[in-house]
């Protein structure tokens, strides 16, 4: 029973981390609370599922479906990241947060309709990546290996982002641009390009979450909205903009939810928001909110 609770908790934590990592990354790097994150997450799921289904039809071996999920997320990051940043976000850096929320919410609505226009309202789903690696037995019940794979993707991708921001030249330039745009420009940094690249990585992160969660669910219009509400709860617990915070927030929420499902199922939904309330009551900026001045 305890093993199952831990496994279920870690699995949900991986899901939550993949949903929220792009949101916290964009806030951490660009200081934009990106409501359109939900649409980018959904676009990742749609594109990855559609691409995988298309290639399966022409005879793609099942093992390569993991690759097509990744490609789907990259396409969304490459297309929509620069598009949204150049056309919309660029005009509002430094603006009041209300403007940011209104603008990114409008983008969410536009992208939501775009998805309906392209993929219709019927559910779209692919099962091969989920079923290909099969099941293992634990405490007398079957458990999918894909859930373990999701945990792996969450750990690897989270570590990659931390490495990118902390250990690379690109990361250092991003930090300098966030800290002082004008001085960075005076030092020869192409500030516009850095913003575009940084937001595109954020868009890719959102899409990657959607792409890898897609094989476990049915992708339908509006499916991401509720999931993203949960992502906001996670990053509020962890501290806005902190990758480590998102990871810890996801872990706490994941384990608490799994425990409540197994022991006090009535509290499944309450427990998540209860944790958020408790954390914010004592640490208004979240668990990692004040550890560093710059959070990534």
């Amino acid at each position: 029973m305890v093993t199952i609770i831990i496994l279920d908790g870690l699995n949900y934590a991986a899901n939550l981390f993949l949903v929220s990592v792009g949101l916290t990354f964009v806030y951490g790097v660009l200081r934009i609370l990106n409501i359109s994150h939900g649409a980018l997450y959904a676009l990742g799921a749609y594109m990855a599922t559609w691409l995988t289904l298309l290639l399966l039809k022409v005879g793609l071996p099942d093992i390569l479906t993991y690759f097509t999920l990744l490609v789907g997320a990259i396409i969304i990051g490459l297309v929509f990241g620069p598009l949204i940043e150049r056309l919309a976000l660029r005009r509002i850096y430094g603006s009041d947060i209300h403007i940011q929320l209104l603008l990114t919410y409008s983008i969410l609505l536009i992208l939501d309709d775009l998805m309906k226009l392209v993929w219709g309202t019927d559910p779209l789903f692919v099962s091969e990546p989920y079923s290909f690696i099969g099941m293992f037995e634990v405490s007398g019940i079957l458990y999918p290996w894909y859930n373990i794979l999701l945990m792996g993707v969450a750990v690897v991708f989270g570590s990659f982002l931390i490495w990118l921001v902390r250990r690379t030249r690109f990361g250092k330039i991003v930090v300098s641009v966030i800290y002082d745009r004008e001085i960075s420009a005076a030092m020869g940094v192409n500030v516009g390009l850095i913003f575009t690249v940084a937001f595109s990585i954020g868009a890719f992160s959102a899409a990657l979450g959607g792409a890898f969660i897609a094989p476990t669910i049915a992708v339908v219009p509006g499916f991401a909205i509720e999931v993203v509400v949960m992502a906001f709860a996670v990053i509020a617990i962890g501290g806005l903009g902190s990758l480590e915070g998102a990871a810890l927030g996801a872990l706490i929420v994941g384990l608490a939810r799994a425990t409540s499902i197994h022991l006090f199922a009535e509290l499944e939904l309450v427990v998540i928001y209860l944790i958020m309330v408790l954390v914010l009551a004592f640490l208004p900026k979240g668990l990692f909110g004040e550890v560093e001045e710059r959070r990534i």
Binding site: I141, E226, V227, I261, E268, L269
Partner: peptide, 22 residues
């Protein structure tokens, strides 16, 4: 034996399925 209440549009049911199987 069990009464489970996932959030509407939750999409992720691994823990509920474990509980039902147990």
């Amino acid at each position: 034996k069990a009464e489970l209440w996932p959030k509407l549009f939750a999409g992720e049911y691994s823990a509920e399925i474990s509980k039902l199987m147990l």
